[in-house]
């Protein structure tokens, strides 16, 4: 089928402001948007820039704003979008070139919540046992691939880039509710800051955007309640 692809492009060395570039090409309905972008870059215009790595929805490189919604270019099919496809860089982060944004502020927020196992007790001889029930509590939040589709779909993040954002809270949840971990207090202290957890206004864009189907708003509410009951 013939597809009409509009891409919001920007080269800071040449352009004053972003502009829409249009490409017409043949694509199969089962092609992914990433295949279409590859076709454009490899056959039509080599200057088009975007990130991709694994191309199978697990590395989290190619989150883009496609037809008005954040998604992974490697997971959305042409047949699900129709003949008109609009691709923009994800919002709220500085565009470096075309679809490539500066991810550093996103990763800074991620690092701020101490996203690693904290337990200073000496390791037991066998294992740090965790029951299947205890593991289940944070199962959803182990699935995050740090693609930033959630954080950059958040209206609060668009207007306040210092908000930690849903991805950081999801990764805090991963450890706060881990029965073997002892760093919950430190993490909750970080999340209790003015630009932390309480900036969430439950717009649900993050939940809709997550390519890993993490119920993000639900887990953010769980962390909010944990913080509330601990303070009370």
């Amino acid at each position: 089928m013939q597809v009409n692809v509009k891409i919001k492009r920007f080269n800071p060395e040449a352009d004053k402001r972003p502009y829409w570039a249009e490409y017409q090409l043949e694509a199969r309905p089962t092609d992914r948007v990433l295949d279409v972008l590859n076709e454009i870059k490899w056959e039509m215009d080599g200057s088009l820039s975007y990130r991709r790595s694994c191309a199978h929805g697990i590395c989290g490189s190619d989150a883009m704003l496609i037809n008005g919604v954040n998604r992974l270019a490697c997971k959305i099919l042409v047949k699900d979008l129709g003949a008109d496809i609009r691709v923009e860089p994800i919002r709220g982060l500085t565009v470096q070139k075309d679809l490539i944004v500066d991810m550093e502020p996103f990763f800074d927020a991620y690092k701020a919540v101490l996203p690693f196992f904290i337990n200073d007790d000496p390791a037991p001889a066998a294992e740090r046992y965790q029951s299947p029930e205890d593991r289940e509590i944070f199962d959803d939040t182990t699935k995050c691939i740090l693609c930033a589709a959630c954080t950059t779909s958040c209206p609060v993040f668009w207007t306040n880039g210092r908000y930690l954002g849903p991805a950081a809270i999801v990764n805090a949840h991963r450890f706060i509710f881990d029965s073997r971990d002892q760093g919950a207090d430190e993490r909750l202290q970080v999340l209790n800051q003015p630009n932390g957890l309480w900036r969430c206004r439950t717009a649900y864009n993050c939940t809709e955007a997550c390519p890993r189907d993490i119920p993000i708003t639900k887990v953010i509410e769980e962390v909010k309640r944990e913080l509330l009951w601990r303070r009370a």
Binding site: G68, S153, R201, T202, A203, N205, E208
Partner: peptide
């Protein structure tokens, strides 16, 4: 942004 109910509620 083509958000759904939650976005418009907000």
């Amino acid at each position: 942004y083509r958000g759904r109910e939650g976005q418009w509620a907000f």
